[in-house]
């Protein structure tokens, strides 16, 4: 019996290791290629350690394209959108979870009914509105389109529902205003769900491609995804340079992922299973 258990465990380990390798091989190849001379990228059998090791690509990529500007733009959008989303979603979620008012269910239904709708299905009227407002080719267009999501309100409301009403009741009896309860009681309790929404919003905005593709034309306003993409189409045979650019674009996500992945996993589990 013991021996059988051990072999099962061995098989699980071998399978998991194999699958993890498959998942990570493209990234490993990307990393190795970024340190190669362009002519060596496709040497076969694959050289997992570059014969002529060079960091040249990482110097050149910053010179060939305004990567720093792209970084700045993307960071700015990510931070602003995430902040607005956190602030307005926690605010609205508090009312939906802890207050009684006429029209509550209808309003909440209005949020729920679009939660699964892909934004691509209503992107054309959005574009009309942005065009009428004269905001095409501005960062503001992306900010106002992405800051108010049903997902954020829903996620945080689910979390607030689990917090006992008695806590709010007691504070009300003590004469605390609703704003006070929100700021002094609910917000401090919401750290985990705020972390979850932050990481979701961060990765969505950082990786967003279609939004900037539609709304941003000027090079100086481009996000890192859009900038990298134009670079790839323009210099399609600069393989090692493209790989270096890709690595640079991945690093911030990798860092956030490494620090907050627990919240990521929990967020998917709760919205997935209970949602």
């Amino acid at each position: 019996m013991k021996a059988k258990q051990r072999t099962t465990k061995m098989i699980i380990y071998i399978l998991l290791t194999g699958i993890s390798v498959i998942m990570l091989v493209p990234f490993a190849w990307m990393l190795v290629s970024s340190f190669k001379m362009n002519k060596d990228v496709f040497t076969y059998p694959i050289e997992w350690w570059p014969k002529q090791f060079t960091t040249d690509n990482y110097v050149r990529i910053w010179q060939e394209i305004p990567l720093l500007q792209y970084f700045f733009n993307t960071t700015k959008l990510t931070v602003i959108i995430t902040m607005i989303q956190l602030l307005t979603s926690t605010f609205a979620a508090y009312a939906f979870a802890k207050l009684e008012f006429p029209g509550k269910n209808t309003l909440f239904l209005a949020y729920i009914c679009t939660i699964a709708m892909p934004w691509q299905s209503y992107m054309i009227p959005q574009f009309m509105i942005i065009k009428k407002l004269g905001l095409v080719n501005t960062h503001l267009s992306l900010i106002i389109l992405q800051s108010f999501t049903a997902f954020g309100v829903f996620l945080i409301r689910q979390f607030y529902m689990e917090i006992p009403n008695e806590i709010c009741e007691a504070a009300r009896i003590d004469g605390m205003s609703e704003y006070g309860i929100y700021a002094k009681i609910m917000l401090p309790l919401s750290k985990p769900v705020i972390a979850t929404l932050t990481i979701f919003s961060f990765t969505t905005v950082w990786n967003d491609f279609m939004g900037p593709l539609i709304y941003i034309n000027s090079d100086r306003l481009k996000t890192i995804q859009l900038g990298l993409r134009s670079f790839i189409t323009e210099y399609s045979s600069e393989y090692s340079l493209i790989m270096a650019g890709s690595i640079v674009a991945l690093i911030p996500i990798l860092i956030v992922f490494a620090c907050l992945q627990q919240y990521f996993v929990e967020g998917i589990a709760t919205t997935g299973v209970k949602g």
């Binding site: 493209p26 190849w29 990307m30 491609f209 990298l228 493209i242 790989m243 991945l250 996500i253 992922f257």
Partner: peptide, 10 residues
């Protein structure tokens, strides 16, 4: 979570 532009390139 990896950016799709980088994934497509590789």
């Amino acid at each position: 979570v990896a950016a799709v532009v980088a994934i497509a390139a590789v």
